[in-house]
């Protein structure tokens, strides 16, 4: 069962990645990209790290993909459906991809990562959270303040831009 699932998710991920590159329509390409990112989330689920998987879904599929879609839709309509047919570039890209995959695979195989076995439990996100709230609390507060400050800063920047636009 797990093997079949792994195969299915792999096919989904790689297939939609190829589709994201090859689709003529930019909108469909970004939808395929969402499929890729979702497939990666599926891998995380299979690796028993639902926490990361959910973050992957919420951040990448939920937010980044919306940004990409938004950008795509603001592009001129002709550009969305523009055909880019250049067989030379296509084959060069496929060849480059094969080289990179082979090189990476060789490195991974050679590094001995396959033989690592460990029996220790995976780190639970609760422990991370607990540590953040107890031992590393200054870091948490600092992060919260920096985040708040950056949001405020962004708002101030956005506001200034807004008023400039209004003056025009």
């Amino acid at each position: 069962m797990a093997d079949a699932l792994f195969l299915a998710i792999s096919i989904l991920t790689i297939g939609s990645a190829i589709a994201a590159l090859e689709m003529r329509s930019l909108v469909y390409g970004s939808i395929a990209l969402m499929g890729t990112l979702g497939g990666i989330a599926g891998f995380y689920v299979m690796l028993d790290s639902t926490f990361v998987a959910m973050f992957q879904l919420a951040v990448y599929v939920g937010s980044i993909a919306v940004l990409i879609l938004f950008t795509v839709m603001l592009v001129k309509r002709e550009l969305i459906f523009k055909k880019i047919e250049d067989p030379k570039r296509k084959f060069a890209g496929i060849g480059l991809m094969l080289i990179v995959i082979l090189a990476l695979g060789a490195i991974i195989m050679d590094s001995g990562i396959k033989t690592i076995t460990t029996d220790s439990d995976p780190v639970d996100f609760r422990e991370i959270g607990g540590d953040f709230l107890t031992y590393y609390w200054p870091a948490l507060i600092l992060m919260a303040l920096i985040l708040a400050g950056s949001v405020m800063g962004a708002l101030v920047l956005a506001r200034r831009e807004d008023t400039v636009e209004n003056e025009q």
């Binding site: 973050f55 879904l57 919420a58 599929v61 939920g62 937010s63 993909a65 996100f125």
Partner: peptide, 21 residues
């Protein structure tokens, strides 16, 4: 789910995509 609230956030994130599509 152990991460139910995060899953809720992930699901909510899908609505804007569907709407804009």
């Amino acid at each position: 789910l152990d991460v139910g609230l995060l899953a809720v956030f992930a699901v909510i994130g899908f609505f804007p995509i569907i709407t804009i599509l």
